[in-house]
Computed example of a mutant assay.
Amino acid sequence: MPGKILITGGSGLVGMRLSEMLIDQGYEVAHLSRNPEKVSTYKTFRWDVEAGYIDESAVTYADYIINLAGASVASEKWSEERKKEILQSRTESVNLLHKALSNAEHHVKGFISASAIGIYGDSGDQLMSEESTYADDFLAEVCKAWEAAAWQMRDLHLRTVIFRLGIVLSIKGGALPQMARPVKMMAGAPLGSGKQYMSWIHIDDMCSLFIRAIEETQFEGVYNAVAPHPVTNKEFTKELAEAMKKPLVLPKVPAFAINLMMGEMSEVVLASQRVSANKVLHTGFTFEYNHLEEALESFYEEEKD
Rank of each mutant, 00 (worst) to 15 (best):
A62Y: 00
S79E: 08
V231F: 03
M1W: 11
S79W: 02
I86H: 02
D305K: 15
Y42V: 06
A51G: 12
L165F: 10
V168I: 06
E220Q: 11
V280S: 04
T237H: 06
H282I: 08
L260V: 10
F285M: 07
Y134M: 11
I5L: 09
S11C: 11
S19V: 04
A213H: 01
A62F: 03
K109S: 15
M179G: 05
E264G: 06
Y120M: 03
K245S: 11
S79I: 03
A189N: 10
L248R: 08
V142D: 00
Q178T: 13
V14Q: 05
I119A: 01
V226L: 01
E264M: 06
L240I: 09
I211Q: 06
W151K: 12
D24E: 12
P251S: 03
V268R: 02
P177Q: 09
H282A: 15
T217K: 14
W200V: 00
G3D: 08
S79F: 05
L260T: 13
S113G: 05
L270S: 11
F256A: 10
K84H: 15
G284A: 07
I171A: 14
A62G: 07
P36K: 01
R46Q: 13
V269S: 06
M198Y: 14
H157Q: 13
T41F: 15
G173R: 10
L158H: 01
F45V: 05
V73R: 04
A140M: 00
G174N: 11
S129W: 05
L281W: 08
L18Y: 00
E215N: 11
Q196R: 09
